[in-house]
């Protein structure tokens, strides 16, 4: 079983939800990422989504869009994301999910990427703009290398699409909580419950919910429905506010702990 599969199995046995944290790799700088990720892990994040910066992030709201610009300005590339994974893996067993738009991966070459990512300690890939219809040629090399592939399920997905999304996914399925781009919101979307139920009928894979979850209360509410909770923009906003200052790691760790405590409470 993969590191991601093992994590969800262990947490399920403990009857505890999985906290997934997204960060844009390279923000505030490539060099700072290992200590930033270590801080998230200390705070209770169970799985890290490593966002690959891209020039045209159509699915992202302003917070992650700006993080992507900062990371690119700081010199982050896909090759350096793999280096980062190696550095994290040397000290930690935390599962790592590469989170990317398609074009940087296509440019790198999926065959080469799959082998190198696995060797670097990456456990899976989520490609924001890859529909299941286009997935076959890209999923094959990733799976062959032993990587999980995580696909998105959306509130707009009709039942037959949910089945295809589940069929193409391994590790877990990522449920998009609402229509729209990434970013925080005041209240949790009402579409989460029905979407979780519809997927439960179609797959035994763990389900994680993301988009718009930014407070311990929202995390708790989501954890009652799903196996995992993804928090992205709220972490990235802390990086934006702290920059490369000394308060970055303590702030991330404290917020992760607040989310974890909220979820498990």
């Amino acid at each position: 079983m993969s590191r991601i599969g093992e994590l969800f199995a262990r947490k399920r046995a403990e009857k505890k939800p999985v906290l997934i944290g997204y960060v844009t790799a390279g923000d505030p700088s490539p060099e700072r990422m290992p200590s930033l990720i270590a801080a998230l892990e200390r705070g209770g994040v169970d799985l890290i989504e490593l966002g690959v910066p891209f020039s045209d992030p159509v699915a992202d709201g302003p917070v992650i869009m700006k993080a992507s610009e900062r990371a690119r300005a700081a010199g982050m590339t896909l090759a350096r994301v793999l280096e980062l994974a190696r550095a994290v893996r040397a000290k930690s067993e935390i599962p790592l999910l590469l989170f990317s738009y398609m074009n940087p991966l296509i440019r790198y070459g999926f065959d080469q990427l799959a082998g190198e990512a696995k060797a670097a300690g990456i456990d899976g890939c989520l490609m924001t703009d890859l529909s299941v219809e286009e997935a076959a040629e890209f999923v094959a090399p990733l799976r062959a290398a032993g990587l999980d592939t995580v696909f998105l399920a959306a509130p707009t997905s009709p039942p037959e699409r949910l089945r295809k999304v589940a069929d193409h996914s391994s590790g877990f399925v990522y449920l998009v909580s609402r229509t729209g781009v990434t970013g925080e919101q005041a209240r949790l979307s009402a579409s989460v419950g029905p979407l979780v139920e519809a997927l439960r009928e179609r797959t035994a894979l763990p389900l994680a919910v993301g988009f718009g979850i930014s407070t311990p209360e929202q995390a708790r509410e989501t954890a009652r429905l799903a196996d995992g909770v993804v928090v992205g923009s709220a972490f990235v906003r802390i990086v934006e506010a702290q920059g490369a200052g000394p308060g970055l790691e303590p702030a991330l760790e404290a917020f992760a702990r607040a989310l974890k405590t909220g979820m498990e409470g």
Partner: peptide, 20 residues
């Protein structure tokens, strides 16, 4: 049927946009 002109075209969008 999936909108491919040879290897080009297709649908590379987040899942939320597939149904629309």
């Amino acid at each position: 049927a999936q909108g491919h002109f040879g290897p080009y075209g297709g649908r590379y969008v987040p899942e939320t946009l597939m149904a629309p």
